[in-house]
Amino acid sequence: MKKAVMSAVLLLGMMATGAEAATRVYVTLSRSETFIDGIRNSLTAEDARDSDVELTIDLANNDRATQQRQVDEAIKAKYDAIIILSVDNEAGQHAFDAAKKAGVPLVFVNTPPPIADVRGKVSIVACNDIVAGRLQMRLLSGAMNNAGNVVVIRGTDGHAASDDRSSGIKEILATRPNVKLAAEASAHWSRDEAEQLVLGWLDQGIQIDAIAANSDEMALGAVTALRKRGIPAGKVFVGGTDGTANGLNGVKSGDLSVTLLQNTGSMAKAALNSAKTMATGGYAQQYEWVPYEILLPTTVDRYATAQAK
């Protein structure tokens, strides 16, 4: 994804006029899936608009060792800054330690590191996932009139977003005595795994009134399971998180009761800006919180239009 290399003549001309070289930023993203692809596409679009940045983007294919190697090689290649959406906490810790030792600015996007003290050339650009879990469960509980059974579909355990969203859900459940947690399990961010989980719970005879999923893809997998068992849209309240295009369509069709939008464009722009700022000796906010936005059937059309633009 690197920009075209300049011709030797143009490069020499720039050197002669004292023009500065572009800031080289390396990006490693945990994997390819709907939401993360949105971040990748937004980063690529920002890169195309900013001639002062040269961006390289790689995927770690959800493999910790691969991502750790990518970070080490980027440092060795003397990139000016690194952006990471980490595979897991261990990959995030490795990136933090390696970048700090090398003095390379590091930006965590979407997934904060498992580190309390992030002083130094580090910036975290993310949404507050505990808040997402709280918002989702409040809305689902309200749809249930604060009574009934809910099941929770977690992302990958040990992943910061999954852990925090699930914690937020349970905080609200603790304040709703008539809403019972009937079952919970990890579907590893997979639509297919979520479908199989819900099919299994239904086949066990578990009464489900609402489903709180840590991502839109898992929420939509749950919807498929409900349909396969003849349960119509709206009978079970299903909530997702991320506000992907698929999630927007799910809310619009009535399959999802709610999703929570993480604005990938805002996140990518803030991450690239922080990386560039630190790489050129400036100060970036340690925590750049991008607010979640609630998408309901009454508001989803506005967001779908904005997304299309």
Rank of each mutant, 00 (worst) to 15 (best):
L139P: 04
D157P: 11
I153V: 14
V150H: 08
R154H: 14
R138C: 03
A143S: 13
A147I: 12
S162A: 15
M144S: 06
M144R: 07
G148S: 04
N145T: 10
G133D: 00
S167A: 10
V151N: 05
H159S: 12
R165A: 06
R165P: 11
V131H: 01
V151A: 09
I130E: 09
N128L: 04
L135D: 03
Q136I: 10
A160Y: 11
N145P: 02
A160W: 12
R134L: 02
S166P: 03
S162W: 00
A126L: 12
M144C: 08
V131R: 02
D164T: 04
G158R: 05
D164K: 10
D157W: 06
N145Q: 14
D157V: 13
D164V: 00
R138M: 11
N146W: 04
S166E: 05
V150Y: 03
S123F: 12
S162E: 05
A132G: 10
R138V: 13
T156A: 15
V125T: 08
N128S: 09
Q136H: 07
I153Y: 01
G142T: 15
G148A: 05
V152C: 02
A160G: 15
D157T: 15
V151C: 05
V131N: 07
N145S: 14
A160C: 12
S166C: 08
A132T: 03
S162R: 03
R134Q: 14
A143M: 13
S162Y: 00
S123A: 15
S123V: 12
I153N: 01
G155W: 02
D164C: 07
L135H: 02
N149Q: 12
V125S: 01
V125K: 00
A143P: 04
I124N: 15
L139K: 05
G133P: 03
N145Y: 01
R154E: 15
N149D: 12
A161H: 07
R154C: 09
V150F: 07
Q136E: 15
L139V: 06
D163S: 09
A147V: 15
H159I: 14
A126E: 11
S167L: 10
R138D: 11
M144K: 08
S166G: 05
N149R: 09
G133F: 03
N145H: 12
C127H: 01
N145L: 01
G155Q: 01
V152L: 10
L140V: 11
S123H: 12
R154I: 06
A132P: 00
S166D: 02
I130A: 08
D164Y: 06
G133C: 00
G148R: 03
R165M: 08
D129V: 06
H159L: 13
I130Y: 00
S141W: 06
G133Y: 01
R134P: 02
D129H: 10
V152N: 00
G158E: 11
Q136P: 09
G155S: 00
G148W: 01
V152T: 10
L135I: 14
A161S: 15
H159A: 14
V125W: 03
R138P: 00
A143E: 14
R165V: 07
D163R: 09
V151R: 09
R134Y: 01
S141L: 05
R138K: 15
S141V: 10
